[in-house]
């Protein structure tokens, strides 16, 4: 419904809908587009996640495609300012809309993803696209969810002449293999997707916290030199992993303590948050969303069956 209404805006000048993406080089032949550490707004056009690309001998590899068709098209224009090699493969980290709704702009390229990602986009793609139209508006014009067509081959492999490793983990996008990471061995750049957040509070709509912690432990064991988180600035060390782990551990303990004290969910949403997390973007909003996601199950465990016949 909202999407149909917005078609009326398609005639607006391209500049209104455009994104001015400039590639940030983080290692030889490796670039990223850094999103705002914010929530979806009309002002930021939904550009809140990091995407990136790697220039190989025979072509370009793209990691995540952003929140809209226009964003994906802007990525391609920006890539063309760096190299005239063709994009030969796209990898989608997980099923959240800020990471895959630019797929439409790569219709001529194989798009690879985990089975969980493909199935979830098939099932929920329309609904999440609708909700982004509501939140972001005009920059979404023309965007439709495109399901990745290729089941990703995991492990170390050479693609477009580049020695890369595709690693499956879980915990952020959901249960099991729901999050895909890409490690470029020559440069040591790890695209970690949303398993890692940096200077921005993690989101938890599909979180499986135990698996997420396992994934963070695994990331620290990987041989990377530059870490590109799903959201927030890149880093030359493991600090973003530690930051994500610290926040998620605190969150889980804090919610269990609140439930053990009998607090209601709305009361928990308005508790004070520790100083050490105040530097994170959208801390209060994400914390309150996490209460909505995680607290119902945690508080349920504090209640017992008191039914009488």
């Amino acid at each position: 419904m909202i999407r149909l209404l917005l078609l009326g805006f398609l005639l607006l000048p391209a500049s209104v809908q455009g994104y001015s993406l400039s590639p940030q080089q983080i290692a030889p032949g490796v670039y990223m587009f850094e999103g705002a550490t914010e929530h979806f707004t009309r002002d930021n056009k939904g550009d809140i996640a990091n995407t990136g690309f790697i220039v190989g001998e025979d072509g370009v590899l793209v990691f995540d495609t952003g929140p809209s068709r226009n964003y994906g098209q802007s990525m391609r224009l920006a890539i063309a300012t760096v190299t005239d090699k063709p994009v030969v493969a796209v990898y989608v980290s997980h099923h959240h809309p800020d990471h895959f709704l630019g797929n439409q702009a790569f219709g001529d390229v194989p798009i690879h993803a985990l089975e969980h990602t493909i199935e979830t986009i098939r099932r929920d793609g329309d609904a999440v696209t609708d909700s982004l139209y509501r939140l972001v508006g005009t920059p979404m014009a023309g965007t439709e969810p495109v399901e990745p067509g290729e089941l990703v081959t995991l492990g170390r492999q050479t693609v477009a002449g580049r020695d890369i490793e595709l690693i499956a983990a879980g915990g952020h996008g959901g249960d099991g293999h729901a999050d895909l990471m890409l490690l470029d061995h020559a440069s040591g750049v790890l695209f970690a997707g949303d398993l890692v957040f940096h200077e921005r509070a993690p989101t938890t709509p599909n979180a499986e916290l135990g698996q997420w912690h396992d994934a963070l432990d695994r990331i620290e064991e990987l041989d990377f030199r530059v870490l590109v988180p799903g959201h927030g600035p890149p880093a030359r060390g493991p600090e973003p992993v530690q930051q994500t782990r610290d926040y998620l551990r605190w969150l889980e303990e804090h919610l269990h303590e609140a439930a053990a004290a009998g607090l209601d969910a709305a009361e928990v949403m308005y508790l004070d948050l520790p100083d050490r997390f105040q530097h994170m973007g959208v801390l209060e909003q994400e914390y309150r969303r996490s209460v909505a996601h995680l607290y119902p199950d945690i508080e349920r465990a504090t209640l017992r069956d008191v039914r009488e016949p």
Binding site: P205, A266, E267, M269, Y270, R288, R289, A292
Partner: peptide, 16 residues
């Protein structure tokens, strides 16, 4: 009234 500014799940918004 304590409630989130934005409903995460419109079927179950906590209020206090």
């Amino acid at each position: 009234v304590l409630a989130p500014q934005s409903a995460e799940d419109t079927f179950a918004v906590p209020g206090f």
